[in-house]
Design a protein around this nucleic acid. Sequence first.
DNA 1: GCAAAAGTGTTACAATTACACCCATGG
DNA 2: CCATGGGTGTAATTGTAACACTTTTGC
Lengths: 237, 237
Amino acid sequence: MIKYSSQTRVLVAVDCIIFGFDGQDYKLLLVQRGFAPEKEKWSLMGGFLQPTESLDQAATRILKQLTGLENVYLDQMHTFSHPNRDPVERVVGVVYMALIDIEKYEKQINDDFHARWFLMKELPQLIFDHEEMVQMALNRLRYKASLHPILFELLPEKFTLPQLQALYEGLFDTKIDKRNFTRKLLSSNILKKINEKDKSTSKKGAYFYTLNETIYKDNGQNMLNLIPKNEMPAILE
Amino acid sequence: MIKYSSQTRVLVAVDCIIFGFDGQDYKLLLVQRGFAPEKEKWSLMGGFLQPTESLDQAATRILKQLTGLENVYLDQMHTFSHPNRDPVERVVGVVYMALIDIEKYEKQINDDFHARWFLMKELPQLIFDHEEMVQMALNRLRYKASLHPILFELLPEKFTLPQLQALYEGLFDTKIDKRNFTRKLLSSNILKKINEKDKSTSKKGAYFYTLNETIYKDNGQNMLNLIPKNEMPAILE
DNA sequence: GCAAAAGTGTTACAATTACACCCATGG
DNA sequence: CCATGGGTGTAATTGTAACACTTTTGC
C-alpha cells in the first residue's frame, strides 16, 4: 500500500475531563497513573487512539471504561501538541469534556484505575500539561453554560430548582436572585414540573422538574448583538 | 529511549480554512492539490505536523507559506479523525480557521500551490472530508461573530461602517437596520473615528474607523442569561 | 411554635427594535 | 439638479435587575 513517505507519525492520546457536581461543589474525576513515567501521580483519564476508531469513539470507550457510563454529554474541546508535552515520546493529546451525573458513576468499575473524585478547589498536582487542560475546560464550561443550558447534564433526570441554582452559583461563584432565576428558566419552557417533591433538603420540600426534551436541543442566541434576534439562526454551535 | 510500545502511530495533518471578504461576498482560499491521491482536485491548504513544532506553529507556517501573512486571526477549530478519511493511510486532521484581509494576500507567494479564491456560494467539490470541515467552520464563524467582534479581522485597518455592516449582513444573509447597527457598535466604544473618508463607494463618502485596540480584546457576555451581567466573568473564552 | 428552605410579584431601569428623513457630492 | 449612498433621533416594546414577605413542615 502506498504511504505518505518521509513524514513522522506520532501517537494520539485522548484525555477526558470528567466533571461532576455533588450538590455543593464541582468535582473532577482523576486516576492514579499505573505506568511510568509519573507512575502513581494523578492524571486525567486517557488512552491512545486505536487504529479502527475515531476520536469520539475513543473518548466514549475511555469514559465507559472508567465510569461505566454511556450516552453522556461528551464534547471534543481542544488538541494539545507541545512537542515535549510527554517526556517519553511525542504524543498529541485530544481533550474531551464530559458532564456526568455523579450519582450514576459506578465505583466498582474504576477500581482498576484508582480513580477518585477531587473537589475542583482541591485538585492535586497533575502530570504533563493536564492542569492547563483542566483550566481550559473550566473556562469552556463557564462559557458554554453562560450561553446554553448544559449544566442539566450534571444532574439526575429529576431535579429541583434550588439544585439547579446551586449549580449555576457554584460554577460562577456568585449568588443569584432566585426569583429572577426561576422566572427566566421557566419562561424558556425548557422544564416540566413534576407533581412530586424532594424532601431531602428542606421540610417544605422542593418540586422536581425534568427537561422538556423537545425544547432542550434547539437553542442559540446572541450577545454583542449586532444581529437582531429574529435573524439569528436557530442552531449556531 | 523508552517508548510506549505496541501503540499505533499516525500522521497528523493541519488544514487551514482561510476566509476572506471582498466587500460583497465571503470567499475561501483553496489550493489545487499537487500530489496523489486526488491530484488536481481542490482542497484546503494543509500540511503535516513536523517533529519539532506545535499545531499552532504548523498552522502559522502553512498559512504563511500560502498567503505570505503572519499575525492574522488563526484559531484551532476541531480535530477530524475518521479512520478512513484519507484513503492512503490514517491521518488525523486538525483544522484551523483563519480570517484575513483579502487585500493583504500576496498572490505571487501562492503560485506554487495553484491557489484560488472561491465564493462561498460557489465552492468546488473538495477532497476527503474537507467539505464537512468548511461547513463546520462556517457555523463556527457565525456563532463567534454573533457573540464577539471578530469580523474586523477580515477588513483592513481602516474601514467604514457600511463595509462592516455588509460583512455582518453577508455572513447572516440578512438586512440590518443601519441606525441600530451603528448605535450598538459605537456604544461599545470599540471603534475610533478617523477624520478621513472613503469616497470609493459613494459621492458623499463614508468616514473611516479603526479599532480601539485596548477595548478590542476584553469581551464576554451572555444569552440564556441565567447569570446576571454584573456577575459574568469578563473573559470567558 | 419556630427554624429553615421554598415559593412567589412588582416596579424601575436598560436594551432592543421599528421606523423616515436630511445631507453631501460627483456627475 | 439630481441620483446615490451616508448619516442621524425618537418612541414603543421587551428584557433585566432589584427588592421582601408568605408558606410549609419536621423537629
